[in-house]
Design a protein around this nucleic acid. Structure first.
Lengths: 185, 185
DNA sequence: CCAGGTACGTAACAAACGTTTGGTAGGTAC
DNA sequence: GTACCTACCAAACGTTTGTTACGTACCTGG
């Protein structure tokens, strides 16, 4: 999608009707034919963002195969981190989207819903790990999932700003140490 | 500062020369007299943002008094979280700033430096806690500080998007559980 | 007193923006 | 055949943007 290409090159600041139209070799009239307003295009851009996130390669999860429990949770979290260029680009766009999303209540609600779903998925993985005895069962799975998502989200932000201080190896170590703390706690 | 008021009302998207000029009852000519370009104003806005963050009230830290170690670390982290309206507003602006910062290498570097300093402070607190035996000493203080900052940063983002799912009480609980895990690990 | 710099305001600039208008081409229904 | 709808383009609209040019107070040092 042209919207995605524009986002990758210019970010949300550069997501203008003209830029998208030019990227797909069309006119701005075409865009307004499909999107009644700029907000509609922004909304669509966030959908595209989510779709791209869903379809992106997940090397760690693939390597984990059909593993269950803690190993799968680790793989999912690892695949979120900006360990390579593509994931760093995707995460940069994602972080940028927080600005436009927070400025518009409806877009914020949609974003909140996306994160809620992500937490839900993660909660399932945590519950699996608890059932396998890999994680303590004395804390609600939802809390552990929310905590894990927070940790990874924050690590993404820090790694984006200071990639030399948070090279892939250190990101992995920090995540593993976090998970080890969860398992021990 | 007028810049701060504009940021609070319209965010970074609405930070225009005219908006700032109107907010301080002056003309755009005045602004260009002090800021050679919009980028300079943006740079200044990020400075103001940092200054506001430095000068904002820190109820938890004050309540903690001259406590040391883990208690002080907890207070500092608590004061970051969006537990009330003012801190939520400040955090919203802060998160929004990531968009403009990530789009400009120089601004990104300045932001990275800010977070590095914050981690440095937190590293000192962690080291204190380790010396007091409140946190295990088998992990580098820098790693623990980076991990704690990641956790809090991510929790801020999630709480901003889903305030009803992350009310102050739950934010506090999640943070305490995280710190307990650190201490036990 | 007066030269010169600092501190502003006024006004305009070109560019870019989102949006609107008017029109063309092609397909479909009757 | 003709009425109508969808898909699209070209062009312009009015507004807002960052920036610049120019004028005028005010102050200060000599």
């Amino acid at each position: 999608m042209a919207v995605w290409r524009v986002l990758a090159e210019r970010g949300f600041q550069g997501l203008t009707l003209r830029a998208v139209a030019a990227e797909m070799g069309a006119s701005t009239g075409l865009l307004t034919h499909y999107f009644p307003s700029k907000r509609a295009l922004l909304k669509h851009a966030l959908d595209v963002l989510e779709q791209q996130a869903a379809e992106r390669p997940r090397p760690a999860a693939e390597r984990a195969g059909d593993a269950k429990g803690l190993a799968m949770l680790r793989a999912v979290l690892l695949d979120i981190l900006p360990l390579d260029r593509e994931n760093a680009d995707g995460n940069r766009i994602w972080v940028s989207s927080w600005d436009v999303a927070l400025a518009d209540p409806e877009l914020a609600a949609e974003h909140a819903e996306r994160y809620r779903r992500a937490r839900e998925n993660m909660t399932r993985l945590v519950a699996d790990a608890q059932r396998l005895g890999e994680l303590p069962a004395d804390r609600p799975a939802g809390d552990l999932a929310a905590a894990a998502q927070s940790f990874v989200l924050g690590l993404v932000v820090q790694a984006l700003f200071a990639p030399q201080e948070f090279p892939p190896a250190r990101q992995t170590e920090l995540l593993d140490a976090y998970l080890a703390g969860l398992a021990a706690g």
